[in-house]
Structures are given as C-alpha cells and as structure tokens.
C-alpha cells in the first residue's frame, strides 16, 4: 500500500495562465530567448544586420529550409524521420523541367511535381506504417530510388529554364517588398500550425509519437496518422522544390543533397523531441530562424562557412541538452 499522498500537487485545477502554465510555456518556447539574444548581439556587432533589407534577406534564405522543416516536424513528432527530402527536391526540379518543356504550363508543372512528391511521401508512409519497417532505413532507401528516378527523368542532364514567369516564383516580390518564397513560408507555417495544433489529425500525431500503444487503445488509426506525416513531408518537399527550381532557373537532378540535415536541425533546435510526441510549430519556426541567423550573422561578421557548420552542430547538441535539463527527463 502506498503511503505517498498526492498532496504534493494538490491545488485544484486553476483556470487561466497559472505559474505552472507559465513554466510550461518557458520550457516549450525557451529557445525563443536564444533567438532574441542572438539577434541582439548581431544587431550590436553588425550595423548591416539591423537593416530591414537584411531581415527580409534572412527570411528569404530560410524559406526553403523552413518549408522542409515544417514538413519534417510532423514526421519527427509522429516518431519517425524522413531522409528522402533532399532527393524529393531534385525530383520536383526535373519534373518541372520536363513538364515545362512538354506543356509550357507552369500550373500543370507545379501540380504534377507536388503530386509526385506527395505520392512518394505516401509510399514512405505505407512502407513504415503498414510493414512496420524502420523509418531511417526506409527513407534512406527511398532516397536512392527517388534520386535515381530524377536522373532517369532528366537523362542525367541539367536543363536551364528560360521561362520568365516561372522565375518570378522565386525571385518576385509582393508589392516589390516581400519575396514570394517568404509569403509561401508564412502560409505553410500557418497551415502547419493549424493542422498540428488545432485538428484531430495533429492530436493523433502527438499521441502516436508519444505512446503508440496508448494511441491504439484510444481508438487512433495509427496507420493513417503515421502515413499522413510522411504525406505532409512529401507535400512540403514539392513546394520547396518549386521555389528552389525557380531560384536556380534550372531543372537539375543533383540538387538537394544534405538538405535533410538543416531541416532536422531546425526541428531539434526548436524543441522537437526525437523520441516523438513533443514539438510545437512556433518552436520549429524559431529553430528555422536561428539557423538563418547563424548563416547570416556569421557572414556579416565575416566568419567563414566552415565555422558556421561547426556552430550549427554545436547548437543542435546545446539545444538537446537544454531540453533535457529543462525537462529533467532521463
């Protein structure tokens, strides 16, 4: 018989933002402090950093990785990982090239390429959720399959795209101020927020990633939930791939190598637990911005890119440690 009483936390449920809720908020978004401190230091050190043009340029820089990370956060929250995103960028690129060549229709090119990446996401999801294969291995393998497919479609050649209208997607600006990629990133972030935090599906993703058995015992369809996260990741790859292709004005089968690293890094820095079941979209956005700050800030201060890579690595370790200390988990 346990004599341990529950009095330790015996206040009844409080409404509104209590101290506990405040602590919880800090634990989830404490990384925001890191972001603010970084920005303040950079603003002091570099006058260029303070310009509004630079803020937009940072957002533009992170737009690609941001969209990928916003897809990745679903997968990691659901207890998986998606290593195939880099290849999916290449697939998008070559499909756009082929479609523009064949039809000249930008809309058709974009729709078909996004549909293709989404289908590959579904394929990842089926292999992982239906056949209970390890996400790491499955996406490591499909990454190769997708990359190979991209080479076959393109015949292995890069093809420059002369379509000026298509170029506008990556280079154009709304009202001549805000680049379209930044707007797309914002829309994707808002959609991701709504889906993860406000829908049944989002809750199920948290439940499946947090405790699959409990999710099953609560009537959650684990297959569609898991598959759904990979479908979202695939969809985001398609969107990011369109922007990337437009910005480089070429259809290339060899692009996107290593892009999964930054996407995963943004999730982890943003407080996403690799064990699954813990993440927030605002946190992920902060992770995305922090990575942007590292690139942008160090460039402005004149530190070479080798150090940027090291800093990013150390920051990931730091973020995980911070998470463990703050959450006092084993």
């Amino acid at each position: 018989m346990s004599r341990k009483s529950a009095n330790a936390a015996s206040e009844s449920i409080r409404f509104g933002m209590s101290e506990i809720e405040f602590n919880l908020f800090m634990r989830r978004y404490g990384i925001g402090m890191v972001m603010v401190i970084m920005a303040v230091i950079l603003a002091i050190v570099s006058p260029t950093f303070r310009t509004s043009g630079n803020v937009i340029s940072i957002l533009l820089q992170v737009s690609l990785n941001g969209i990928l990370a916003l897809g990745m956060v679903f997968v990691i929250t659901g207890g998986g990982i998606d290593l195939s995103i880099g290849s999916l960028l290449a697939l998008t690129s070559v499909i756009i090239g082929a479609m523009l060549n064949a039809t000249g229709s930008i809309v058709l090119a974009c729709v078909v390429s996004v549909a293709a990446t989404t289908v590959f996401g579904l394929l990842n999801g089926i292999l992982i959720a239906k056949f209970k294969m390890f996400p790491f291995v499955v996406t490591l393998a499909t990454q190769l399959v997708i990359r190979g497919t991209a080479y076959i479609i393109s015949g292995g050649y890069s093809q420059s795209l002369a379509n000026a209208e298509f170029k506008e997607i990556g280079a154009g600006k709304l009202f001549g101020v805000i680049p379209y990629p930044v707007i797309i990133l914002t829309v994707v972030a808002i959609l991701a927020y709504v889906i993860l935090h406000w829908t049944k599906f989002g809750r199920y993703v948290y439940a499946v990633g947090g405790n699959k058995n409990a999710a099953i015992a609560s009537g959650v369809n684990v297959f569609w939930t898991t598959a759904g996260t990979y479908i979202i990741s695939g969809f985001c790859c398609g969107i990011a791939g369109i922007i990337m292709t437009s910005r480089i004005s070429a259809a290339q089968p060899n692009i996107g190598v290593g892009y999964e690293t930054d996407a995963i890094a943004a999730c982890v820095i943003g407080g996403t637990s690799f064990a699954g079941g813990v993440s927030t979209i605002p946190g992920t956005v902060m992770g995305i911005v922090i990575i942007g700050l590292i690139y942008n800030g160090m460039n402005l201060v004149g530190i070479n890119s080798y150090w940027q890579t090291i800093t990013k690595g150390l920051l990931i370790i730091g973020a995980v440690m911070l998470d463990m200390v703050m959450n006092k988990r084993k």
Binding site: Y206, A207, G210, N211, N213, A214, A217, S273, G277, V278
Partner: peptide
C-alpha cells in the same frame, strides 16, 4: 504503456 501519453 496503454493508458497515457506521459508527455502530453
């Protein structure tokens, strides 16, 4: 194992 998502 079957009842709760402990971190939610």
């Amino acid at each position: 194992n079957f009842g709760l998502c402990l971190y939610r």
